[in-house]
């Protein structure tokens, strides 16, 4: 039998995504340890990383980091394939869909804060849509909407400000921006 060798070349791009995903996973774990003032509401710190990746390396890299974070984060937290995992997955999918549209916004007028707020709203919409369709097919879920929307606005704004600050602090990284 001929000896077959499978070589998976590791590109610089792969290393970069792995590094960024590791940061996002770290933030996810740190966040899970934080006590939450309102049940189910989290600041979404990993979104800072994903938004940064989008602005500096484009949508494909951001999607990779998001999916790796989702899978690895849930495996580490023990929530893989649980209802909570699917809620997180639908939130992440809605966020990526929103980002894929938002990347075409004129950069001159809309900064990371806009992207962050709108994506946070997309995130809760995705989550609540799944919760509504799957767990509570009625109007009941609407009762939670104002609280989630308020949290999305606050954390979306704060995360967006952090992203703006991080990009402003490192203009050389911003130079390879894939934001069109």
């Amino acid at each position: 039998m001929p000896k077959r060798e499978i070589i998976l070349p590791i590109a610089a791009e792969d290393r970069r995504i792995a590094k960024l995903a590791a940061i996002a996973i770290g933030l996810t774990l740190a966040e899970a340890a934080l006590p939450s003032p309102i049940p189910g509401v989290k600041p979404g710190l990993a979104n800072i990383v994903i938004l940064l990746v989008l602005l500096q390396h484009g949508l494909k890299a951001a999607a990779s980091v998001s999916v790796i974070r989702l899978l690895a984060g849930s495996l580490l937290l023990g929530s893989f394939l649980s209802p909570g995992f699917w809620l997180a997955a639908s939130g992440a999918a809605a966020s990526l869909l929103m980002l894929s549209i938002l990347q075409y916004l004129p950069e001159k007028f809309f900064g990371p804060v806009s992207l962050s707020i709108l994506t946070a709203f997309a995130h809760i919409s995705g989550q609540l849509a799944l919760a509504w369709a799957w767990l509570l097919p009625s109007t009941g879920i609407l009762a939670l909407l104002p609280f989630f929307a308020l949290a999305a606005l606050i954390f979306g704004t704060v995360n967006g400000l952090i992203v703006t600050r991080l990009i402003a602090g490192k203009p050389d990284m911003g130079a390879q921006s894939a934001h069109v």
Binding site: S114, P146, L153
Partner: peptide, 27 residues
């Protein structure tokens, strides 16, 4: 903080606040 915001960001912030206020008042 104002330095970090662009014109459109204020619009998004305002619309977001409006949406949240509407959701709370409806509730």
């Amino acid at each position: 903080i104002a330095m970090l915001l662009r014109p459109g960001d204020y619009v998004v912030l305002l619309l977001g606040l409006l949406l949240v206020a509407m959701l709370f008042s409806a509730r």
